[in-house]
Design a protein around this nucleic acid. Sequence first.
DNA 1: TGAATGTATGAATAGGTGTTCATATGAATG
DNA 2: CATTCATATGAACACCTATTCATACATTCA
Lengths: 125, 125
Amino acid sequence: MNEGTRVDMAGDDVCKTVCVHKEAVDAVKQCMVGDNTLRELAELFKVLSDHTRIRILHALLHAELCVCDLVDVLDMNQSAVSHQLRVLRTAKVVKYRKEGRNVYYSLDDDHIFSLLRDGMDHVME
Amino acid sequence: MNEGTRVDMAGDDVCKTVCVHKEAVDAVKQCMVGDNTLRELAELFKVLSDHTRIRILHALLHAELCVCDLVDVLDMNQSAVSHQLRVLRTAKVVKYRKEGRNVYYSLDDDHIFSLLRDGMDHVME
DNA sequence: TGAATGTATGAATAGGTGTTCATATGAATG
DNA sequence: CATTCATATGAACACCTATTCATACATTCA
């Protein structure tokens, strides 16, 4: 069929920009994973994209801590910390364990370690 | 009365929550990297936390593409794509190369690969 | 049981962010 | 030079999010 840089089949080139490298674009479209997966991925990064939550995770990198420990480490409102812990919990980025009236938090799995480390590498280079 | 779990030196425990595990908390505080670094880390993740930007990066994972290629792949406004490319550029997550009137984008370095892969691993588990 | 304490949560609010629209820039082409 | 086309950018608006305040829940202890 047509070769080169033309797109005229789908009728969705509403705008005039038509410089597409068809082969490359088609190849990329093939490789694209499901949109839901990419949505979840963005969601995961969103969970890691807050200063407070990053500080929580960085603290948990070194030890399991209860909420009031975190309140002390971060020097923040208990409410604010709890709210952010909820976000981390919901995203399964941390796990928790109740003991008496305390709740102890820790990182959920090793992927989180890797993510934080890779992120650090990029930031510090 | 209570031993070991006291904090009364710094005077900043304005709220009544005082169940802190002092040793653990102090150890964690020792290990904490500079706040600016953590801020940059959160900033990096924030750049990765948008659906459109993740789709762009996932596309660039497979090939260098120009803006209008991305417009086609994502089926989006050229303006929206350009805006997001700017965010990625500014964060040094992608690099670009001008050739004629086209601008070709690609991932900046391997850390980005690692981040995306680790993120995928976590999402797909 | 009631008081004290650790944690969670709903509502409100201020600040941030992504998309769209309109327009600018800048390189190629005739 | 004027035009065309690829890309960038500023402003506006709607949506989302993090913190605070107040309060609820749950567990321990007297």
